[in-house]
Write a protein that binds this DNA or RNA. Structure first.
Lengths: 227, 227
DNA sequence: TAACTTATAGTCAATATGACTATAAGTATT
DNA sequence: AATACTTATAGTCATATTGACTATAAGTTA
């Protein structure tokens, strides 16, 4: 490390990465060194003098977990006085939504392990990481209603049922199937692929894909999924 | 200053305070010292080791402008590499919405003057303050549609027309009067005060007030003003 | 072939929307 | 005092959206 990329002593980054395949998951890393060695925590680290906050977030996430080429969104800076032991540290939290299947997890740098955790299996995390995570869950619930963002979490081809399960598991509510279908299909956001799912022990559902043009338009314009 | 509240060298706070009376305004302070002496900028300053980010924001805003007892909401941390000259500084931006009439502006601390600026009269600001302000405007436009927050900006008693002008000036769109009335009145958010405005040279409009119970409920629940 | 499971289609009353028109209640002008 | 403005408020109407359902279709497994 040359003098230019020495770390800033009091600003860190933490990432909350939500993943989805059949259910919602969160990405955690196990600390391989330091005072909290062995503990699971949000992927995070120090920023250096020669990078922006955003660059730091991408670098740290990649080094620790192997996850890259995703869209990281800044969420909030956490700056309670004693959130970090023995030292005053402000952390800037980022968050993202990905399909778990798309990424090979590779523990690196100071991380000895990386794993997807179900929301109800998340252990007690160091510092204020549980608080950050809680905040991220609420953020996700809001976001999903105002941006067609939930779709990031699904495979390229998906059924309406998968989409419904996604919304149900994020919002923690039960939705009426026919009405959900009608609403989504009327938004013109999906392209019918004229394909069906395979290897299911019941009537196979149609597969859909995003209509990325409509998707981008809706992202710009007001999008409200009032479920 | 004792050793406990010495400043952190690389983290600052900046506040974007939106005000409204008849139109939308932004609060700026004039620097009374330092390299940008004489320039107008967002109210901002350094955080100290003995306060949280939120506390720092309230303190700094009060010291510079005299504005206190408002709800400050953290917006985003800005951390581009060269946003600040000669030094690496990450700033955490806060924002708020207030009624201009409720606050007496008092320039203090390092500020030689404080003033409300109309959006189109805002000068070139130092650092990345124009960028922060742009971000805040977009944030405000989004927020106003998903929270009944616009009401913070009006006097206690107001007419439906004032409310409409408020939304029009934030969203920069024209709204249909009868439809706007119908929509707002059906939300059950307003209490008819059975009073009328005075000293207008045309038919006087009814005055309304918030129904703060409904207001709080809507704040919790999904609120969507789809204008 | 029947029973089961999930997908998909459709019904219907109630409500909300957008684009208007109409009237009411004042002030200002002649 | 009558008329012209101005803005507030009320109402219309065709169309679209919602929520709560029921019905049927298309497959699997027993």
């Amino acid at each position: 490390m040359n003098s230019m990329n020495r770390i800033m002593e009091d600003i860190s980054i933490d990432c909350v990465i939500f993943g989805f395949t059949n259910d919602l998951k969160v990405l955690l890393v196990q600390h391989g060194e330091g005072i909290s060695k062995g503990k699971w925590a949000l992927p995070g680290g120090w920023i250096t003098y020669d990078e922006s906050l955003d660059q730091a977030a991408y670098r740290i996430l990649y080094l620790l977990t192997g996850v890259k080429d995703i869209f990281l969104d800044q969420m909030k800076a956490f700056g309670a006085k004693n959130r970090f032991p023995d030292k005053r540290v402000v952390t800037v939290a980022y968050y993202s939504l990905v399909k778990t299947e798309d990424y090979d997890l590779v523990a690196g740098f100071t991380a000895s392990d990386v794993k997807w955790f179900k929301p109800d299996e998340i252990p007690r995390l160091p510092y204020d990481h549980n608080e950050i995570l809680e905040y991220a869950f609420r953020q996700l619930q809001n976001k999903v209603r105002h941006e067609p963002v939930g779709f990031n979490l699904l495979p390229e081809k998906f059924t309406l049922h998968q989409l419904q399960v996604l919304y149900e598991s994020i919002l923690r509510i039960k939705l009426d199937k026919p009405n959900f279908r009608r609403k989504i299909l009327n938004m013109n956001l999906l392209m019918d692929l004229n394909e069906k799912q395979k290897n299911v022990s019941h009537r196979a559902a149609k597969l859909y894909q995003f209509n990325s043009e409509t998707y981008d338009t809706l992202k710009e314009k007001k999008f409200v999924l009032d479920l």
